[in-house]
């Protein structure tokens, strides 16, 4: 029997966000590996399949996450190699701001096993709905917070800036569950190069179960240093400037418009032989 792997997303809110195909994969799998956001979701998953194996045991404070994730991938792939129909279920979307599913699928494909991903409703999807943000309105940039700090990025203050995993800001060890005020101050200083001190930002968390409220705490940018941040907290920075028209490009487009208009009004020529 040939093994296979499907990585599925269960969505953010227990019972509300899972797609029919993801649920079906979970129910029909030989083995389900899981990384859920709360104990209720883990229990819910365990009710869908008799062999659900929680991957939480691989986590350890101080242990490099790269090692943890590779161990998770190995655990998943070893059962695929044993010929099992394996499903790896992740909360939210399995391929958004999470590397285990991507790594596992790549490795399975390298070993010639069928492997695919089914999307789930992500924290990003919930954020747009809960906070009433349309990413198409003035644009929206998303960064992993530490990566945003480690590399020089171009910040467009006329678009929304969304920083994920802000509780881990500046962690180079990849082993912490949160970083402290000194790290956050570095982030705030970086942001203050582009945003005013009194700029209002939002700390957001999607709800995990029906009775849990979503988090939408509005604070000043400078208050971020002392804010209560959890691993699932996202920092949303609304625009602080208006979009500037690109006059040069608009002139080029106007020229093309004029040319097209002239071509339209030109009398049709008939070739007479």
């Amino acid at each position: 029997m040939s093994g296979s792997l499907v990585c599925v997303g269960t969505g953010m809110t227990l019972g509300a966000h899972i797609s029919p195909i993801s649920q079906s994969h979970i129910e029909q799998a030989d083995i389900v590996f899981s990384l859920m956001a709360n104990g209720f979701a883990q229990k819910w998953l365990e009710g869908m399949n008799a062999d659900v194996r929680c991957l939480q045991g691989f986590y350890q404070e101080g242990k490099n996450r790269n090692i943890t994730y590779n161990e998770m991938v190995e655990a998943i792939l070893s059962e695929v190699c044993n010929g099992k129909k394996v499903v790896a279920a992740f909360y939210g979307h399995p391929g958004v701001f999470a590397c285990v599913a991507h790594r596992a699928i790549k490795k399975a494909k390298l070993d010639d096993f069928p492997a695919s991903m089914e999307p789930g409703i992500s924290a990003e999807d919930c954020l747009y709905a809960d906070l009433g943000i349309d990413p198409g309105k003035t644009g929206c940039m998303h960064y992993e917070t530490s990566q945003f700090m480690f590399y020089k990025r171009n910040i467009d203050t006329s678009a929304h800036l969304i920083l994920w995993q802000v509780a881990l800001a500046g962690d180079k060890s990849l082993g912490k569950f949160s970083t402290g005020k000194a790290y956050r101050q570095v982030l705030v200083d970086l942001l203050l190069e582009h945003y005013p001190r009194d700029h209002e930002v939002i700390l957001y968390q999607a709800k995990g179960i029906a009775i849990e409220p979503m988090r939408e705490d509005k604070i000043l940018l400078t208050e971020l240093v002392d804010a209560d941040l959890l691993m699932q907290t996202t920092l949303v920075i609304p625009p602080c400037s208006v979009m500037q028209a690109n006059e040069e490009l608009l002139a080029k487009l106007a020229k093309i418009d004029k040319q097209e208009e002239r071509n339209k009004n030109r009398p049709a020529l008939t070739l007479v032989l």
Partner: peptide, 17 residues
């Protein structure tokens, strides 16, 4: 079940795979 941590993205994802 106890949930200790969440899967996250690594700032520098240079996976061997």
């Amino acid at each position: 079940p106890e949930i200790r941590c969440y899967p996250i993205l690594l700032p520098d994802d240079k996976s061997e795979e």
